[in-house]
Design a binder for these strands. Structure first.
Length: 132
RNA sequence: UAGGCAAAUCAGUCUAUCGCUGUUCGUCUUCGGAUGAAGAGAGGAAAGUCCGGGCAGUAUAGAGCAUCGUACUUCCUAACGGGAAGGUCUCAUAGAACCAAUUUUAUGGGAACAGAAAGUGCCGCAGAAAGGAAAACUACCUAGAGAAGUUCGCUUUUUUAGGAAAAGGUGAAAAGGUGAGGUAAGAGCUCACCGCGUUAUUGGUGACACUAACGGCAAGGUAAACCUUACGAACUGAAAGACCAAAUAUACCGAGGCUUGAGGGUUGCUCGCCCAAUCUCGGAGGGUAGGUUGAUGGAUCCUAUGUGUGAAUGUAGGACUAGAUAAAUGAUAGAUACAAAGUUGUUUAAUCAACAAUGGACACAGAACCCGGCUUAUGAUUUGCCUUUUAU
RNA sequence: UGGCCCAUGGUGUAACUGGCAACACGUCUGGUUUUGGUCCAGAAGAGUUUAGGUUCGAGCCCUAAUGGGCCAA
């Protein structure tokens, strides 16, 4: 299994981000908010992700960096279910993770929450895809 | 034991698993990359953005005014509002000179510390009077007039004119202080000592200091009020700038202009100067939204040594490649060094001490062109000084 | 990255050259009313975001910090 989580997974395109926030669908699962949409862009892996931690909730840069690191780490470990499901349906998506809580969490705690949230996201994606 | 001040040091280390961003080398390649190995990867404040400089672009024809900043002296520095050494003033504590005023010694702290005899403003309430010194509420003195008492000497009191600025009272502040003489009463009116000012000698690079003579004492405070004086400041800011690639609209509307100068630039203004015709300004629109560079070896750090009181600096030797860009150093598990408390054991009649084991903390905080400072945040250890409390 | 501004009762705002921190709404008490509202009378509630400094005296002047907001790109 490949645990790597490099630059290819990062959503960097300005246009994509703008359209994502305009047209994307929201899924809420405390303490995260997901915004996702499908894409026709040529990307290597089934998804690209954007992680956002608000300056409003964390004043200091080191706190924001810590939370982002933890989220990255958690996704890196738990991306397979999402990846496999997407490749089954031959879908490519981009999504943003927004951390909406205003306190730091332990990594263990955060990972559990994220797993739960990711599973919710996967079902949502497949649902919307079925409808369309 | 706790706190404060000053100075110094460190900001854990190792292993395993899975990862992140560059670099070098090898292999493969559809030349886009892929993959393996090696090695590198946040700070003392990276922070605040409070100053200064480098660097870059524009300008360079300047002058005056305005604006902003700095302000004891000398030095350090690329530069500074930073630092060093010194001077002066001031505060606290303790002591000395008989009280006071004032002076002085020791220790420790603080100072935005140029000018208030260039000018203007302000100084509420209180107070007679708050700025050219001025005035008489209580109280003092002299002279005139009146009243009452009388032992006919005078005493008390009212009022008028003057003297004086000493006492009381007001205030943050009433302008030299203490003592003596002097006087109707008083007063630097005079004298002694102290303080203050001016001038001069001497010492010091200088801020200033010492001494002497003279002045009789003016010149209240406020410049973190305007201001004056001296010195300094061209503007912009790496999202600067340079290059490559991609894309498009030398189109449309309005105003103005053609060397007799529209307009633009030059700091805010004035003058002056410069540029200026397929042009300038405004409007409404179209396209792009990538990459490379700038950009990490430097006013760098360490050691030795010379110069200097010191900040610094000369010489010699050695050391050092973070370079991300929706923004990299992480997560999990374990071990371990060092500090304190605690627990257990040994020793002991018991406690202390000693020894051994166990146990056991990481605060503040994340580079964004780079440096020098300042400020603020903060864990631990060591040294020195000061203060408080408790115990002996 | 660079630049600018603000902070005053529970809320929204005043306070001029430094000289007793004011107003409205709200709150509380009493009155009027059968009761509530309206109305009338009265009261409480702040030491001006924090810490220093200048000054006789600071909301105002100066310095530093804290929090909040805005602009350029």
């Amino acid at each position: 299994m490949n645990f790597s989580f490099g630059k290819e997974y990062k959503l960097c395109s300005h246009k994509q981000i703008e359209s994502l926030f305009k047209e994307g669908k929201k899924v809420r699962e405390f303490p995260f908010t997901f915004i996702f949409s499908t894409t026709e862009m040529e990307i290597k892996y089934p998804f690209q992700v954007l992680i956002s931690v608000s300056k409003r909730n964390f004043k200091h840069a080191h706190d924001r960096n810590y939370v982002k690191r933890c989220i990255r780490e958690a996704i890196r470990k738990n991306k397979f279910e999402l990846e496999s499901r997407l490749s089954e349906q031959n879908l490519k998506i981009v999504f943003a993770i927004i951390y909406t809580f205003n306190e730091r969490m332990d990594y263990v705690n955060l990972e559990q929450k994220l797993i739960k949230a990711l599973s919710k996201l996967t079902t949502q994606i497949s649902n919307t895809n079925d409808k369309s």
